[in-house]
């Protein structure tokens, strides 16, 4: 973690404590590794514009001629709409690159931070810095 990351995490943690905690967050995000982020490049197999979360099924080449399916959890359609996403912004077959917080248990899945689309646009998942997630 860089000094800036730590500072951001600190500010976000203080900000979160300063007000009444928002009840009803869909689930805790402690199952994801917010520090050791990974980048995955692959082909979209599924794009599910659903609640409580949007999901991307991403087939990532394993370097040996096969692919591995990653399950990437995004924010909700509501949150993503507010930061510029659309229900059809990603389609099966699209080549995309995603920056994710991987599952701590090592399963092939994680939570999205950013997605870079085939046309070069990078979309945020709207997470504030420091792993304080309210979505």
């Amino acid at each position: 973690m860089t000094r800036l990351d730590r500072l951001c995490a600190g500010i976000a943690a203080v900000a979160a404590l300063a007000t009444a905690a928002p009840a009803g967050a869909h689930h805790s995000f402690a199952m994801f590794d917010h520090v050791n982020r990974i980048t995955l490049k692959g082909t979209v197999a599924k794009f599910e514009w659903t609640n409580p979360h949007v999901f991307i099924g991403l087939d990532v080449p394993d370097g040996a001629g096969a692919t591995k399916r990653y399950t990437v959890e995004c924010a909700s359609p509501n949150v993503l709409t507010r930061v510029g996403w659309k229900f059809n912004i990603i389609k099966p077959g699209d080549q995309i690159t995603v920056l994710v917080n991987p599952l701590k248990n090592g399963d092939p899945g994680g939570m999205l931070e950013t997605a870079t689309l085939a046309d070069g646009r990078t979309l945020s998942d709207s997470n504030p810095p420091g792993g304080v997630f309210q979505r």
Binding site: M31, N51, H53, G57, R69, Y70, E73, D107, G109
Partner: peptide, 29 residues
């Protein structure tokens, strides 16, 4: 206001009361 129907919940609670994420069925390949 946007609609919100909680239909695709991939979170589940295991026997120890821990929240886990259900992977895409093909993710285990």
């Amino acid at each position: 206001m946007l609609e919100y129907v909680c239909e695709n919940n991939r979170s589940y609670v295991d026997a120890n009361g821990v929240t886990r994420m259900k992977l895409d069925p093909e993710s285990k390949k």
